[in-house]
């Protein structure tokens, strides 16, 4: 029968485990906040892209209207006699 257990030098292992808990708490705290920062950047990018899409949509509408007005003015300028009264 294999003899399981029996940690040799249990006191030293316990001390090392205790130090490891505290070190990993610090590491977990840092890594979690880095991930939160990353999440914020991702969400910022998505939100900004969405707002830019809305702005682009408005610009498209204005551009089409401007193009229409340019065509109308162009036609009017090409036929000045029609407005001579």
């Amino acid at each position: 029968m294999a003899r399981a257990g029996g940690i040799t030098n249990a006191v030293n292992v316990g001390i090392a485990v205790q130090a490891d808990w505290e070190n990993r708490e610090f590491i977990s705290h840092i890594s979690l906040n880095v991930r939160r920062l990353f999440d914020f950047l991702v969400q910022f990018e998505a939100t900004t892209k969405s707002k830019l899409a809305s702005l682009n949509e408005k610009l498209d509408v204005l551009e089409r209207r401007l193009e229409l007005l340019e065509v109308q003015v162009g036609n009017a300028s090409a036929n000045p006699s029609l407005f001579a009264t």
Partner: peptide, 19 residues
């Protein structure tokens, strides 16, 4: 005693006494 040693080993390797 043999089983007690195993249980003590569990405490040794995972206990966070300072908590």
């Amino acid at each position: 005693k043999d089983l007690s040693r195993i249980l003590s080993d569990m405490r040794t390797l995972s206990a966070d006494w300072m908590a």
